[in-house]
């Protein structure tokens, strides 16, 4: 453990250029994935919360089940899609950061959609009559509900970010862990473990933990100050 902390501090103190590159790519990939997944999943979650339609229950069960999708399976699915022999092969996206973003979107979209569905459905139960009374249609209610649930939804999105930045199975398969191209924090940790550099692997793990904690802390503080202002 001591060696791991030493390794972590040494890497940070030296501003190791390779580490900086890996951290930057990790954040780029995971934040992009969270952004894209949220842009799709938040309105989707709201729509499932607000409308009754045939197969709605099934869709909710599927979304909930996909929250536990093993990253390796998500990675394999995206790999088969993006492989040259696959349907999207001609795009040449395999072993690129874009492929990693796509895999992470597949992983976290169900999480954000399923959890936001729950949050929005609860709020809709509270707001429904008032909004109807004001003549707001269901479609028109979505922006109001998303905005008013923003604190809970921030937590939902952070859960997605946590999963995206922590997983290794999917990005390893679709990214290939190519040095300088698709090597991120988690794949570096896997590689260093394979090299038997356990202190370095654990040190990288500590840095990853600190990064994720920092993103969460910033989101928490922004949320708290807004909550204090707006109740």
């Amino acid at each position: 453990m001591d060696n791991a902390f030493q390794a972590a501090f040494r890497l940070i103190a030296e501003r190791d250029p390779v580490l900086v590159e890996i951290v930057t790519l990790s954040l780029q990939v995971s934040l992009t994935a969270v952004l894209i997944a949220s842009a799709i999943a938040l309105p989707l979650g709201a729509a499932i919360a607000l409308w009754q339609f045939p197969g709605r229950g099934l869709l909710i069960v599927i979304l909930n089940a996909f929250m536990g999708l093993p990253p390796v399976v998500a990675g394999l699915m995206v790999y088969l899609m993006l492989s040259r022999a696959g349907p999207l092969g001609e795009l040449g996206l395999l072993f690129t950061p874009t492929a990693m973003v796509i895999a992470q979107v597949v992983l976290i979209l169900p999480i954000v959609a399923a959890l936001s569905r729950q949050v929005i459905e609860e709020l809709w139960g509270e707001y429904r009559e008032q909004l109807q009374s004001l003549g707001v249609s269901r479609l028109g209610a979505i922006p109001t509900l998303l905005w008013d649930a923003r604190f809970s939804l921030t937590t939902v999105v952070l859960a997605g970010f946590g999963r995206a930045s922590a997983e290794v199975g999917a990005v390893l398969i679709v990214g290939g862990n190519i040095s300088g191209v698709t090597r991120v924090m988690t794949t570096s940790i896997a590689l260093e473990t394979n090299r038997g550099n356990l202190p370095l692997a654990l040190g990288l793990g500590i840095i990853l933990l600190v990064l994720v904690a920092t993103v969460n802390a910033v989101a928490y503080m922004v949320g708290e100050s807004a909550r204090r202002r707006l109740g």
Binding site: E126, Y127, E129, Q130, L131, S133, L134, G135, V136, G140, T144, W147, D148, L230, G231
Partner: peptide, 26 residues
């Protein structure tokens, strides 16, 4: 027409913003 409920349903924003939201909705 308008309706006021026994337990007022207010949005998670300022008092003024609640009134503005209702006007915007209409």
């Amino acid at each position: 027409q308008a309706m006021v409920f026994q337990r007022p349903v207010l949005l998670r924003r300022s008092a003024l913003a609640n009134v503005r939201h209702a006007l915007g909705a209409q």
